[in-house]
C-alpha cells in the first residue's frame, strides 16, 4: 500500500531486547537459580507508513512479545522503539494516552477479547470513554467502525452480547473496537487462528480492505505463511528471539534464503493431494529460549550448519530487497 506518506518510517525498533526472569519463588528457596528467557534478543525493525508486515515464526520465537513491545504493553530490557519519531519508553500522561489511541491491538481470541456480560455497544463504548472522546461522537464513530469491518446494520448487533454472535462476527467486532480511535498502527496477533476456515477468509478480506482504506501500518503475527502472504507484502521471520530473514513475502516464498525460512515454506500445508512428502530440511526438537545455542541460534537444527555458525552470530546481509542473517550468505 502506498499511502500519501509512504517512505516515511512510522516505527523504528533498534536492537530491542526483552528478557524475562522465570522460576518460582519456591525454586529460589531451595537454591534454584531463576532462568533468564531471552524472548526477544536484539531485534531491529523499521516499518514505513502504510506498510503491512508479517511477523512469522513458531511458538516461543518472540513474535508476540515483539508485538507487545511495539505497543508498549511491555517495556524492553534494552534497545529503543520510536513511534513517529518519539521514543515510546519516554511517553507518559497525555503523550502516552495519545500513543495508546494511535497504536492498537487486535486480539487472537475473539471469544475471550470481549467481556461476555457487556453488550457489543458497551464493549465499543469503553475505549471511547477511556480515551475521553466526547459522548456526542460515540454513535458516529461506532457506526463508521462497524461499517469498515462490514458489519452492516450495526443496530442488529449492538444490543447483543458476545455469545449471540458467530466467531467471524465477533472477530469483526474486535477489529472494529481497535479502529474506533482512528489508529495509525495495529498489531494483529493470530486474529483468525480461532476461526473456522469458511469464516477466516471473510475476516482476512476485511483486514486487508480496512488496512488499505485507512492506510494503516500493520503487524500481522502468525505461524502460518499462507495467511501472512495473504495480508502482508513484507515478512519478517523470527527464530528464538532474533530476526533470520526480512523481505518481500512473495520473493521469500519463491526463494527462501535462510535455511529456517526454507523449512517453514516447505512445511506450509496445502490442500493439494499431490504435494511433496519429502522430509523437512530441519532437525527435530524444540527451540529453548532459556538455553539458546551460541552463534547462530538455528544452527542445532540447521542441515547446513558449519563451524562458523557456532562461533559467531551472523550479521545482516542485504540481498536485493531482502535482509538475511546467515553465514551461508554473509
Amino acid at each position: 500500500m502506498s499511502g500519501p506518506r509512504a517512505g516515511v518510517p512510522l516505527i523504528e525498533a533498534e536492537d530491542v531486547a526483552m528478557h524475562f526472569r522465570v522460576g518460582s519463588a519456591l525454586s529460589a528457596l531451595v537454591g534454584g537459580r531463576p532462568a533468564l528467557v531471552r524472548a526477544v534478543d536484539g531485534v531491529s525493525l523499521t516499518l514505513m507508513r502504510g506498510e503491512s508486515v508479517g511477523l512469522l515464526g513458531e511458538s516461543g520465537c518472540g513474535k508476540t512479545t515483539m508485538g507487545r513491545l511495539l505497543l508498549r504493553l511491555l517495556r524492553p530490557s534494552a534497545g529503543r522503539i520510536r513511534f513517529d519519531g518519539e521514543d515510546i519508553a519516554a511517553l507518559s500522561g497525555a503523550g502516552l494516552r495519545r500513543f495508546r489511541a494511535r497504536a492498537q491491538m487486535i486480539f487472537q481470541n475473539p471469544f475471550e477479547a470481549l467481556n461476555p456480560r457487556f453488550t457489543i455497544a458497551a464493549a465499543l463504548a469503553e475505549p471511547l470513554e477511556n480515551a475521553g472522546i466526547p459522548r456526542a461522537e460515540w454513535a458516529g464513530r461506532i457506526e463508521r467502525a462497524m461499517e469498515l469491518v462490514r458489519l452492516p446494520d450495526p443496530g442488529q448487533f449492538l444490543a447483543r452480547r458476545p455469545h449471540q454472535l458467530s466467531g467471524g462476527q465477533l472477530q469483526r467486532v474486535v477489529m472494529a473496537r481497535a479502529l474506533l480511535l482512528d489508529p495509525d498502527f495495529v498489531v494483529a496477533d493470530e486474529p483468525v487462528s480461532m476461526l473456522d476456515v469458511s469464516v477466516r477468509a471473510g475476516v482476512l478480506n476485511v483486514f486487508r480492505e480496512v488496512r488499505a482504506r485507512l492506510g494503516l501500518t500493520a503487524i500481522y503475527i502468525s505461524h502460518d505463511l499462507a495467511l501472512v502472504r495473504y495480508v502482508c507484502e513484507r515478512t519478517v521471520v523470527m527464530y528464538l528471539g532474533r530476526v533470520v530473514e526480512d523481505g518481500p513475502t512473495e520473493a521469500m516464498i519463491e526463494d527462501p534464503l535462510h535455511p529456517y525460512t526454507r523449512a517453514l515454506v516447505a512445511a506450509v500445508p496445502t490442500p493439494d493431494p499431490d504435494q511433496s512428502h519429502a522430509p523437512l530440511p530441519i532437525g527435530r526438537g524444540a527451540p529453548d529460549a532459556r538455553n539458546p545455542p551460541s552463534g547462530c541460534r538455528f544452527r542445532d537444527r540447521c542441515p547446513l550448519a558449519h563451524d562458523r555458525c557456532a562461533a559467531e552470530a551472523p550479521r545482516p546481509t542485504r540481498i536485493g530487497a531482502r535482509t538475511v542473517y546467515c553465514h551461508l550468505h554473509g
Partner: peptide
C-alpha cells in the same frame, strides 16, 4: 506449529 505439525503427520 507448522513444522512440528508436519513432523507429527510424517
Amino acid at each position: 506449529d507448522v513444522i512440528v505439525q508436519r513432523q507429527i503427520l510424517d
